[in-house]
């Protein structure tokens, strides 16, 4: 055998030995799942609950009126009511419900009208005695799915004299509601 053949055989033996060496690397091992599961986010939502009351004006007689066509006269009292549904989920969820915007008097003599502050009441607590919600009330997931009734009263005073405030308007278009999350105590700053 010449040197070339001897070298080739030695190389082949070395390769075979290396292949055999793979088996010699197998030692004990064990795998374990972290069981971290999934992180699930909560929910915050505020919507008009059209199923119960999407918003309506009623006069003093309790008659539902179409405010686009209705014309008030001194002595009239109109009340606007609307049901809102709150969605609040999340273990550390906290939120506050507040009013946004306000009615704008665009012509009535100020002394001839009184407009109440919009009242928010959680009527899911006790239907017969709704629980008032103020701007400082902290809402938690305990009230998730509750219905809130918002009500505003417009009073055209009977004491209005002469022909004051005829053909005038009071605009409530900008009135709205906002449900806003409050940062948890442990909130990050990011």
């Amino acid at each position: 055998m010449n040197k070339m053949v001897k070298g080739a055989i030695a190389t082949g033996v070395g390769v075979v030995l290396l292949v055999g060496g793979g088996g010699t690397l197998a030692t004990w091992n064990q795998a374990q799942s972290a069981s971290m599961g999934s992180v699930v986010s909560g929910d915050l939502n505020l919507e008009v609950n059209t199923a119960t009351n999407s918003g309506k004006w009623t006069n003093a007689a309790g008659t539902v009126v179409d405010v686009k066509a209705y014309r008030v006269v001194p002595g009239d009292t109109l009340t606007y009511t609307q049901d809102l549904k709150m969605t609040l989920t999340g273990d550390l969820m906290a939120a506050k419900l507040s009013l946004t915007g306000a009615g704008a008097n665009t012509g009535f003599t100020p002394a001839s009208v009184v407009v109440s502050a919009t009242a928010l009441n959680d009527k899911s607590v006790t239907a017969s005695a709704p629980s008032p919600i103020s701007a400082s009330t902290v809402l938690t997931p305990a009230v998730n799915g509750h219905l809130v009734t918002a009500s505003t009263t417009f009073t055209f005073l009977a004491s209005t004299s002469n022909r004051d405030s005829i053909n005038q308007t009071y605009d409530f278009k900008s009135v709205g509601y906002k449900l806003e999350q409050q940062a948890p105590v442990s909130a990050n700053a990011q």
Partner: peptide
């Protein structure tokens, strides 16, 4: 946060 409008419209005097 979530906001909705009241759509209360406009009250008009006769």
């Amino acid at each position: 946060n979530s906001a909705v409008n009241s759509n209360a419209g406009t009250v008009q005097a006769a």
